[in-house]
Nucleic acid binder design. Structure first.
Length: 409
DNA sequence: TCTGGGGTCCTAACGCAT
DNA sequence: TCTGATGCGTTAGGACCC
């Protein structure tokens, strides 16, 4: 198989090119760009209607800076210029504001991302239909059977994809070309942004082995630390270890996988379709809440989370039978509890009831920073016998009073 | 000073049935 | 009847990804 890995660079403000920009956190009062523009140009030049089309024209000075940020937000993504300051994804915004106070802070705007994400993927499937979705801005492509795909080792096709995406969205895109998904993903990192990198089978030792193990998609911070403890720093070091040694130290499955990965072997196909396994909603509170003292607030949040999951399930046409909760205490320790029903459901009341039972099985004497509700073991709605597929209409259950949610003991 | 939200997959422990 | 091997579903936790 010949695989592409394409990842799209989402920042779309040309005037911010080369500047340190971080995206993350919630919307703040001072982020009201349109309001600020209207105040500065009172002649009515900027309106809600033309704002979206004129983003390119917003003067750089109008974008909010991260300096002085307070709150619990984390960084979703950052430009390469911001990364120079040591800023990276998942870092707390308060820490980032100290590392680079002059960085511009943009709020996340998932509606906009969804729009561009759909365009990005539609353009790719038009050109190369065997595409696997890997999130908002990344995909795998199997171009083995795309006409002309082999020209210049795939470079011609990669350029066509880049150009088509740029023409339609103004977004740049990095492409890695390799014999399989594992290597293609690594290759795509070589030449960012807007690059094309081709790695052939016999480039393994020169291009892949010198890389840090952490560059393997599937080796995270924990595995990396453990590998380093054995003196294994590069993929080449890893390839030097015997299979049985890796299995002994990392387990049958993970050890064998590490060995394969180090030798650049990966026979996973590009999967064009997949079914969701679970859906969840969770929220981190602005301040830690206590089950007793903040009972009402917590109860309301809990009910809302259940309603949101139920709405997600119904909108997408799924039902599940494993209902679970997740919470995180003030010390960041997370716990989960779940319960499996005999029938499938997408009913907010039933989810709320079972999730409430799960809640009774955890320690609620400590303050909570996060609460979440999850529904798993999903099936397409209507593929199981009727009973569980019927939702009570609002009339049937008018205003049922919330029962005691967070016991006082 | 901390550390979001949405997922997937894996593992281990345990109860239960064969 | 007791015991162990085996296998399976559920539950809890954690690593990892974007």
């Amino acid at each position: 198989m010949d695989a592409f890995y394409a990842s799209c660079e989402l920042l779309r403000y040309p005037q911010l090119k080369g500047m340190p920009v971080v995206i993350g956190g919630g919307r703040r009062k001072e982020d009201d760009l349109l309001g600020k523009l209207q105040a500065a140009y009172p002649d009515g030049e900027w309106t809600e209607d033309n704002f979206a089309e004129r983003l390119d024209e917003i003067p750089v000075d109008f974008f909010p800076r991260i300096e002085g940020y307070t709150g619990r937000g984390v960084i979703t993504t950052a430009t390469y210029a911001a990364r120079q300051f040591g800023i990276g994804s998942a870092m707390g915004l308060m820490k980032a504001s100290k590392l680079c106070p002059q960085a511009i802070l943009l709020p996340v705007d998932f509606d906009r991302y969804r729009h561009f994400s759909r365009t990005f993927k539609a353009i790719i499937t038009d050109i190369a239909p065997v595409m696997q979705d890997r999130g908002v801005d990344e995909v795998y492509i199997d171009f083995t059977h795309v006409p002309g795909g082999q020209r210049e080792g795939g470079r011609v096709l990669a350029r066509l994809i880049q150009k088509s995406i740029f023409d339609a969205t103004g977004l740049t895109c990095s492409v890695g070309v390799a014999p399989n998904k594992l290597i293609a993903k690594m290759a795509s990192e070589f030449n960012k942004p807007n690059g094309i990198s081709i790695v052939r089978e016999d480039d393994l030792q020169t291009l892949i082995w010198p890389l840090a193990c952490r560059k393997i998609n599937g080796v995270g911070p924990k595995a990396d630390e453990k590998l380093k403890g054995f003196g294994i720093h590069t993929i080449g070091d890893l390839a030097g270890r015997e299979l049985h040694w890796l299995v002994e130290n990392f387990g049958k499955s993970y050890g064998a996988w590490l060995h394969e990965a180090a030798w650049g072997r990966d026979d996973r196909p590009v999967e064009t379709e997949s079914e969701p396994v679970s859906m969840s909603r969770e929220t981190t509170f602005e301040r830690d809440l206590h089950a007793v003292r903040d009972r009402e607030e917590l109860g309301a949040v809990f009910t809302r989370l259940c309603q949101q999951v139920a709405a997600d399930l119904q909108r997408k046409g799924y039902e599940g039978k494993t209902i679970g909760i997740k919470l995180r205490y003030d010390n960041f320790q997370a716990v989960t509890r779940d319960q499996t029903l005999s029938e499938y459901t997408a009913d907010p009341k039933q989810i709320r009831q079972i999730a409430g039972q799960c809640l009774k099985r955890v320690d609620l004497s400590r303050r909570l920073r996060l609460l979440g509700v999850r529904v798993g073991s999903l099936v397409k709605a209507g593929t199981v016998p009727a009973e569980s597929a019927r939702y009570p209409s609002p009339q049937e259950t008018p205003h049922e009073q919330t029962e005691l949610l967070f016991p006082d003991d």
